[in-house]
Design a protein around this nucleic acid. Sequence first.
DNA 1: TAAGCCACGC
DNA 2: GACGTACGTGGCTTAT
Length: 797
Amino acid sequence: MTLKIWTTADAPLIKKTFGVSLKNHRPDIPPHQFLPLIDDNPPPEAEAGEIVLVCGNKPLDVLRRAGLAPKNRTVTSLREKPIKSSHGGYYLVTFDPTLTSSEPDKSEIIDWDVRLAVRLMRTGSLEPEIGDYRYVNDYQPMIDWIEERYAKTGKPVDVSMDTETMTFYPWYPDRDIVSISFTARPNTAEVLYLGPHKPPVPFNPSVPLFDQIKWLLTSPKVKLRGANLKYDLIWIAVKWGIECTNFKFDTMLVGTLLNENRSNSLNLHAKIFTPIGGYDDYLNATYDKSAMEKIPPEDFLTYAGGDTDACQQVADIMRDELAEDPKLATFYIKILHPAARAFEKIERRGVLVDKEKYEQLADEVRGVIQESQDKAMSLLPNKMRIKYRERIESQLKAGKSPLLPSILKEYFFTPHGLSLKPRELTAKTGEPSMAKSHLLQFADVPEAMAMVEALTEMDTASKTLSTFIVGFLNHLRPDGRLHPTYMLFHGGLYDEEDDQSGTVTGRLSAKDPAFQILPKKTKWAKKIRACFPAPPGKVVISLDYSQGELRVVACVANEKNMIAAYEQGLDLHAVTGAQLGGVPYDEFVSWKETEDAKFAKMFEDLRQQAKAGNFGLLYGMGVEGFMAYAWANYGLKLSYAEAEKIRNDFFTLYSGLTDYHEKQREIVRFSEMVRSPLGRIRHLPMIRSWDRAIRSKAERQAINSPIQSCLSDMMLWAIALIDASYPNGEIEVVGMIHDALIAYVPEQDAALWAGRAQEIMSNLPLHEVGWKPQLRFPADAEAGLNLAELKKLKLVA
DNA sequence: TAAGCCACGC
DNA sequence: GACGTACGTGGCTTAT
């Protein structure tokens, strides 16, 4: 029995592509050999018991010429379909490993195909090897087995847990947990069915199921595992009131740490790591997983049991893989896992909403939309109004804006309207851009300006209404709170077909609703934020790392001037701002205090511009990119020479950054990855792309990622520590926005509690993950009765 | 239904 | 010669 991998790949690429997938087979690495492709040779024979894995079009062509594979079929369509050889074995088709340098996501597919080939070789079938899954009405036998094992080994026993639920949100009283499954022994699962169908095994009233489940979720003899267990533990806490204390390992979190680029999901992990991969394909294809209660128990068992069996096997492999990278393992244990536990509580807590105020605001916004819409319509030439009469009417009938982009495009850019010559085209379609930043470039044309003003008014109001009022209120739960889901991993949230969620950089994302993008600076920001009050007796506090990314970069790059500036308490944005203004630092800063409002405004404007420039230049933006950026974001028209001077001055002033940039480029070119000071890895396989632009992008990512993720992870760590330090909820964290947290604290001692939180943020035990930064990381605090009225808070140390 | 564009956050 | 912040979520329109 041999797996013959037939490929044009060279030795290093073979090792990279097939090394891990072959190694991860349990219990042993399958016998295999690599066959090079030699011109004009006939295809290798697949003898009985052998599989030839045909890697890509080149070997596939040989197979086609030999009449063994159909002519007009792609690799994609031939995958997963064994071709019988006349000698008794099989050919299986997969992608060329060379593809992975331009399409890294192909490597998981190749992994899966290798797994299928080994499965076919060992079992003679492509079907997954489903374990022994049973419906139970009593977990005592499992508990006894765990006790026995614990007594024998003295070590906590790995147990995987999973639930299936009615819809995705537990905040409604009529929605319940449909099943709970546990796997303690490999290839088994014990499923307790609680759904509306007839119980597959009758309930026994004398069995203390609640106590048994509680034991499994709290006993120190158990090390609990799961796949995105935050989700299940929230349901269990909300519905059953059980607080899990022994959760130690999450395959989604660890899977993301090991490879943030792949679409992490239990389905994929099972496919590339275990023999049961594909156990859930039938159910996924047949049923709607948001309505688990509707699935009949006979179809349900393989899925519910397979989940924990797969999780158990996947976790075994991931644990070993994680252990090979002690820095990553430390990062997981100290930071990411505790943070996930903290976010369990944050999501349960939710964010309080003033619904009445929200509804008043909705009316106000609707009024403004109507006004500005009428204004814009009046500016549209009669001819166009007549031409588009039907479309306009149907839009109005549907309650939508009649000023469709296609109509407006015609108005601005054709002789039917203003005949303006577009200055920006869209990336994919090459059409004139309808972005406000583009339209504003025609400010010198009065008609254009009048229309743009009306449209801007209308669009910002519409955006406010659709996204931040109606959109947010769609997620308002019966307790009067929003409960956004925070993504701490990258992958599909609910199943393989899901849209991707979470980030590849390690930043968080929030969804349902996207609480992190609540407007802060727009026209409507204050009024929206006023709808987010503190609960009675509490105030809202916001704490954010003061110039956090700049401080991180100063430390990581060991940039002496930056460090010195911070040590002297200088404002670094002002340092750069002084440069933009062409004045000495002291004079520039004095503008801020001057009574002349003009100078005060110049100070603020320049400092804002400097802030923008700081970030752009910091992360590898070139001269022209900086010009475009300054123009797009700040209306700052720089000549090439001016932009170049600012850039040069910036890097002369902070010469350590140049070295840091170069170092990151070298690291990523050599190792295809970079690591943040806290241990998190960003894999950048695209650095091997043949396309210079793509390689440059990977280089900039190598520069940016460690900084951005470091600060974000510091915030995560701080939240985890705050949660652990104040388990009684004196500081109720309710949200995180990248480098800031939002919390409710008792009104009485707001400054005291904010001070405690600030202290934790500024005194993270960074040395525990092996980082000793040269600077401290102070945090700014604000407090108020709602999110609109946050005022700077002087902290009580 | 998918893709493109746009706008919001840091 | 082209192309040069990074990362997201989500609503709307248009093309298929």
